[in-house]
Design a protein around this nucleic acid. Structure first.
Lengths: 363, 363
DNA sequence: CTGAAAGCGCTTACAG
DNA sequence: CTGAAAGCGCTTACAG
């Protein structure tokens, strides 16, 4: 590889002039510049990006920590992040190992999280003493991260309302909620759901407790006593949980449902993965979605297009969210003030999994 | 950020000693070393990875060029690549934009391709004058890349034989093949399939031409005259092809099938994505897989677990393949001789999409 | 307009 | 065992 020294020698000028010619900066006589450039070209010279980085103290590389890449939502987030980074001359690289200690050796200018539990884990460990700009997406505006970081808040009240509004507009009153057993995010959405449904139950004069319509599931909760909690963040060593996914939680939820007398006519699921898992479990028993039970998700995963039945869902626009988070981080790095704070564009995507109920058909 | 100079000053030693202490190299008196390390620690000192890279002239970063990340096969390949890289202290970052010119500014030691058409495009453009170690996976041992690179060859004859053996063992004789209209890889598999089936047809005494059992499809081939070929490699600007996928090719193939009098009892599909797209299209018409028609894929994508019906397929072990390719590239970078040349471990994965045919039921 | 020099943060022979 | 010096490949004031 030719260096600027080789070019300088071959062109009979100083290295400083080569720099100026190549960077199109400062003064250098037109003819000299052209000569330098042609020499550089004939030598196949490329400025060494590492040296440039050392000089400028930035690499234009970002890291996105993700707990699970096969989750469609995460993949879409990454896709959006990549796209925005590309536009602005950055690269984002993905880390699913979440071995945070390694960041000290990484050539990155900033850190992205798509989930605040991962961000929190980082900030409570390595991030406590290793300071680097961080942007995270959070489900909860009130969640207090250990260090002040720029966060983009998903407007969950609006998400829940959008979903419930839709189900009600289709005649559903007994609406259930399916969520994983653990996770602050899940609890937060559940809380919003319950407070909304309490109001509806009063309005409709329904005497049931909302709690009777909730299904909480977790992988491995079938063998009582043998309740292993899968880690929320996977390490490469977590071999036994390699196939862990929300999908399986949904499947398990269907088993709970079939064992119960849950009177819901429709279920809102914590996310689409759970929704599809639930549908799989339901249909295995011979029941049919939506004729026997309606299902709705949250996220808007791209796999909807691949499955045999499109899930009705509230899209969070994961790709755009990834792009916006990345844009905010780059703004931060470049000294601009990031624009977005609240991510408030849940969009209802109609599918084939919600039945229209006749008003008089309700008990 | 503290630098080694700060540490040297605070510890009252030279920068050289700090280096030796931190790197555990060369001689430095035990007490001095401990003192230096404790000072470094209290200052929160971390060696600057960019400076280290400039010194060592390597970044331990690899790039994987992929034409489409949402394709499950690619995602699995990436996953495996990441895992192997992690083990060996490298990172691999993903580039789906394939804007090869940018590589000159990237901080990478080597390049990975999961597909030789992408590798070829690289080697014919930027890669022609920009020399950097390259490893690619190829479907064709005889494919001559413009520059000698280390390639890992998928044993396609064995893949095709494994699939055909299986279908024949289930009583199928009239076996068709579904492939995209374009692509050297597809043609190569088709050729292998045809030569194998020709032998079988002779053995069975079947007088048909194999060609009558082949379905070639492409997105957009429904409106005759309006035949836009989607690019094989997507650029960020290819907005109209954003949702392009093999899946849709399979769907289109089903439409062709339904319009035809194709006598096949089973189809081997170029890959699983096409297989699932084909099933979707078939089932939409009211036909049923496998009772009306059997379908088999190639790849072994992880989404098999998510779909309502598990596709019978020949797994290529994409994750392991990604790991092996990455291992080979790292070997190359570290001056070791890479081990693997032929990737020859297709594994039959039984699913629910191939029917067992009675021998007497055949025409 | 151009070049010599100092510097980005680190390493590693080379003297001592 | 330790430090001064040169070097990795580049940039950028500072003189001229």
């Amino acid at each position: 590889m030719a260096t600027r020294k080789d070019v300088a020698r071959a062109a009979g000028v100083s290295v400083a002039s080569v720099s100026r010619a190549v960077n199109n900066s400062g003064y250098v006589k037109k003819e000299v510049k052209e000569h330098i450039l042609s020499v550089a070209d004939s030598l196949g010279y490329n400025p060494n990006p590492i040296a440039l980085s050392l000089q400028s103290r930035r690499t234009r590389q970002l890291i996105l920590y993700l707990n699970e890449i096969k989750a469609p939502y995460n993949l879409q987030f990454f896709n959006g992040a990549t796209r925005e980074a590309y536009k602005r001359g950055y690269s984002v690289f993905l880390d699913v190992h979440c071995d945070f200690e390694r960041i000290k050796g990484y050539l990155v200018d900033g850190v992205l999280f798509s989930l605040d539990i991962v961000a929190e884990k980082f900030l409570n460990s390595v991030g406590a003493n290793y300071h680097i700009p961080v942007v995270t997406v959070t489900n909860d505006a009130s969640s207090a991260l250990p260090h002040p970081v720029h966060s983009i808040v998903i407007d969950n009240p609006k998400v829940i309302d959008t979903a419930v509004d839709y189900l009600i507009s289709k005649g559903h009153k007994l609406i259930g909620f399916i969520l994983p057993k653990r996770g602050r995010d899940a609890e937060m959405r559940l809380k919003l759901f319950k407070s909304r449904m309490n109001r509806e139950f009063k309005k409709f004069g329904i005497g049931l407790s909302i709690d009777d319509l909730i299904i909480c599931a977790e992988i491995g909760d079938e063998e009582s006593g043998n309740n292993i909690d899968p880690p929320l963040i996977f390490q490469p060593s977590d071999e036994q949980f390699e196939e862990y996914s929300s999908f399986k939680i949904g499947y398990r939820a269907a088993e709970h449902y079939l064992d119960s007398r849950n009177p819901a006519t429709a279920f809102l699921c914590f996310n689409d993965d759970i929704g599809y898992g639930f549908m799989r479990g339901i249909e295995k028993s011979g029941l049919c979605v939506p004729s026997d039970i309606s299902v709705m998700g949250i996220d808007g995963i791209y796999l909807r297009e691949w499955f045999e039945k499109k899930l009705t869902t509230v899209s969070l626009g994961a790709e755009n969210l990834g792009a916006v988070a990345t844009g905010a981080l780059i703004d931060l790095l470049e000294g601009k003030k990031p624009k977005f704070l609240i991510w408030s564009s849940p969009a209802l995507l109609e599918g084939e999994t919600v039945k229209v109920i006749q008003k008089e058909g309700l008990s």
